[in-house]
């Protein structure tokens, strides 16, 4: 009974966030437009590379679908760190801390609510654009697998952004941390190119980070055109999710103990 009540609280936060996302459509339209532009540019680039006879070790059509998937995940993940930082800077966090609910749990539920609106819309955009630029659709079984695993990956990224946002309890500005982590995600996650195409040393380095399960992992099903290893990826995502959850919990615990509310 208590668990159901606790879950319903977080569902309520997620629903508020979905209501917000539905009202504030401008950002979503902006992301959709960005999507179309970036996929257009890269599909032309991969085609030109292939036509020039340069070895890119994969079919350009697959690379466009791969990029569509990784970009879909990245663009779906809500940048919760910015909202958290603003709330902590302004001192508004005080209103949220006084509620009978976990502060980070509520923030994460809101992120999932935003994700629930963004992810389907952006997935449709991604697939439509990828089809428009390649005139081809990958086999449906591996493509369908990218949906739940991509959603889970975007949720992991949102949790990581949440951890970055919590650093605002100590740092004046978390954006440098965000930029560094995001660039690491782009590189080690394999945003533009599959990790298999990286030099060996880079592949080994990437394997020690959580980033491949956030981008390359779900997108590789499109590349391999196979549903094999999906359970392994889901388990890896769960393991890294546990690690990030611990980091978030620890950061919030430390912050609550030494909390200073800005502005009195």
């Amino acid at each position: 009974m208590r668990t159901a009540s606790a879950v319903s609280k977080y569902i309520a936060f997620a629903r508020v966030a979905t209501a917000l996302a539905r009202r504030d459509r401008g950002e979503l339209y902006g992301r959709m437009l960005f999507f179309a532009v970036i996929l257009g540019v890269f599909s032309s680039l991969w085609r030109a590379v292939a036509e020039a006879g340069m070895p890119i070790a994969a079919d350009p059509r697959l690379l466009v679908w791969y990029l569509a998937t990784t970009e879909w995940i990245i663009l779906s993940a809500p940048p919760v760190h910015a909202e958290l930082q603003e709330s902590i800077r302004r001192g508004d966090v005080v209103c949220r801390l006084g509620r009978p609910v976990s502060y980070v749990g509520a923030a994460f539920a809101e992120a999932l609510g935003l994700l629930a609106v963004r992810a389907p819309v952006l997935a449709a955009t991604a697939w439509a654009c990828a089809f428009a630029f390649t005139g081809w659709i990958p086999p449906l079984a591996p493509l369908a697998l990218t949906l739940p695993l991509g959603f889970a990956a975007a949720a992991l990224i949102a949790a990581m952004y949440l951890w970055i946002g919590l650093l605002a309890f100590w740092l004046e500005d978390v954006s440098p941390v965000f930029w560094v982590v995001q660039k690491l995600l782009f590189v080690f996650g394999g945003l533009m190119l599959p990790i298999e195409l990286y030099p060996r040393a880079m592949q080994i380095a990437a394997a020690w980070t959580p980033f491949p399960v956030m981008l390359a992992g779900p997108a590789s099903f499109v590349l391999r055109q196979s549903a094999a290893d999906s359970l392994t990826l889901a388990l890896e995502q769960a393991a890294w999710g546990g690690g990030i959850a611990f980091a978030v919990w620890w950061a919030f615990r430390r912050a609550s103990a030494t909390l200073t509310i800005n502005g009195g």
């Binding site: 508020v16 209501a19 917000l20 009202r23 504030d24 302004r90 001192g91 508004d92 005080v94 209103c95 949220r96 006084g98 502005g263």
Partner: peptide
């Protein structure tokens, strides 16, 4: 709790 300079309401809703 009411904090006059803070808001617990969702601004856009």
């Amino acid at each position: 709790t009411v904090f006059g300079q803070r808001s617990q309401l969702w601004y856009q809703l």
